[in-house]
Amino acid sequence: MENMTNKEYQKYAEKKVPKPTYFKNMLMAFLVGGIICTFGQFIRNLLFKSGLDEKAVAGGTAIILVFLGALLTGLGVYDKIGKIGGAGAAIPITGFSNAIVSPAMEHRTEGLIFGVASKMFIIAGPVLVYGVTSSVLVGILYLLLTKGR
């Protein structure tokens, strides 16, 4: 043991871990992600047909998908979809919903304020922080770059 440096040990231990089933994982991510997006397209078309404009359709689609992600999380189905689909379940907006709903449910036992409300963002909080920050930067950069024109 002493004759093995930490680096050597870490390298050796790394080799002991079985490799992920790359191809199967990619295929499942493709299928699950693809199906969720196709369903999103179906909702988009439905909303367009009802005469909404592009912005309202985008907002409406997001709200409906977030609701479905939340409901499937509540019913205990989304974690199983996530286990099969991996990134295919995490990356669509339904996965964002799952990341908010699952800690909210989990921490219900610690009450409505410090449990549900404050733990709701333990996974998805960074998404909002970086999303809002970078969008404001984009807006300001746009102003700086177009002012001279």
């Binding site: 079985p18 999380t73 199983k80 995490a90 699952s102 449910m105 989990e106």
Partner: peptide
């Protein structure tokens, strides 16, 4: 799980180790 990893209903994959 809740203390060390993720909420139960969070859809993540467990790796082989």
């Amino acid at each position: 799980e809740r203390q060390f990893r993720f909420p139960l209903e969070y859809g993540s994959q467990r790796n082989f180790s």
